[in-house]
């Protein structure tokens, strides 16, 4: 077992009424598997991802429950403890490739940043070598050229690959992909999904794939968690969910897949 989330509750206090955005969430992730979280926007998927990645240390919110990563409690861990994991054991890729890269820093610098933090023993030529390798791993042509470019010189799909490269450079055990394809064209979406599949197969990276697009989730994930209003309403293997959805909500999500894109099993 790589990750175990028990009774996770997340509440916001930044408005007059406290707002519970994740309610009693439980989930388990085995090493090497790809788990999907689906649900409409606003259902609490990103908040769950942030909690696992340790980004929910804010004074206007309350978190309860526990998040165990290889047995270590992370939800209430100290910031310094968390930082040992972030980017090193657990990485995350966001939805927006246009804003996820620092506009004033070169691509290479950004890809190397995790190495600078977590592998201070490496010298700059070794960092360079690994950055080039990471860029090649995400199927970017001419990584040496891309290394020197600024984000605005790359397309959305290329940037998302760069994001994946910098997330993977320390070879984390868990990669969280929060709607990584939502902002991209359909053809690029499929390429990214295939890339994630390959990384999972070759590097045995466990992936938590968050999406509201069930057709992608179906291609990629072996198990699915369905969320609605901060509550897990259904969970099961991909086949079960698609063949016998128990909840009306799940059926609705499945029916939202455009017919043409629906892959044939």
């Amino acid at each position: 077992m790589l990750l175990e989330v028990n009774n996770l509750n997340i509440e916001f206090y930044d408005h007059d009424l406290p707002e519970r955005v994740v309610n009693d969430l439980n989930m388990k992730l085995d090493e090497g598997e790809i788990l999907g979280i689906v649900g409409e926007s606003g259902s609490g998927k990103s908040m769950t991802a942030m909690a696992i990645a340790g980004l929910l240390k804010r004074h206007d919110m309350k978190t309860e429950g526990e998040i165990l990563f290889e047995g270590e409690e992370l939800l209430h861990a100290k910031r310094d403890t968390l930082r040992q994991y972030q980017g090193n054991e657990i990485s995350i890729v966001f939805q927006e490739p246009m804003t996820s890269l620092n506009p004033v820093k070169r691509i290479g610098w950004q890809v190397e940043e995790s190495l600078r933090i977590h592998r201070p023993d490496l010298d700059s030529s070794e960092r360079y070598r690994r950055a080039i390798e990471a860029l090649r791993d995400v199927e970017l042509d001419q990584p040496e050229l891309i290394y020197k470019k600024y984000p605005h010189e790359l397309s959305g799909g290329m940037r998302q690959r760069v994001m994946i490269a910098s997330a993977m450079i320390c070879e984390p055990k868990l990669l969280i992909a929060d709607e990584p394809t939502t902002a991209l064209d359909v053809t690029i979406q499929l390429q990214i999904v295939k890339l994630l599949q390959r990384l999972n197969r070759e590097k045995h990276t466990t992936i938590l794939f968050i999406s509201h697009d069930l057709s992608l989730v179906r291609r990629l994930c072996s198990r699915i968690i369905v969320m609605q209003n901060g509550i897990v309403v259904e969970t099961g293997t991909t086949e079960d969910i698609f063949h016998n959805p128990v909840q009306e909500y799940t059926r609705m999500l499945i029916n939202a897949i455009p017919k043409l894109e629906k892959p044939v099993i």
Partner: peptide, 10 residues
Amino acid sequence: DYVKSARLAG
């Protein structure tokens, strides 16, 4: 987002 990413890289 890129600041969030940096935080999440430790």
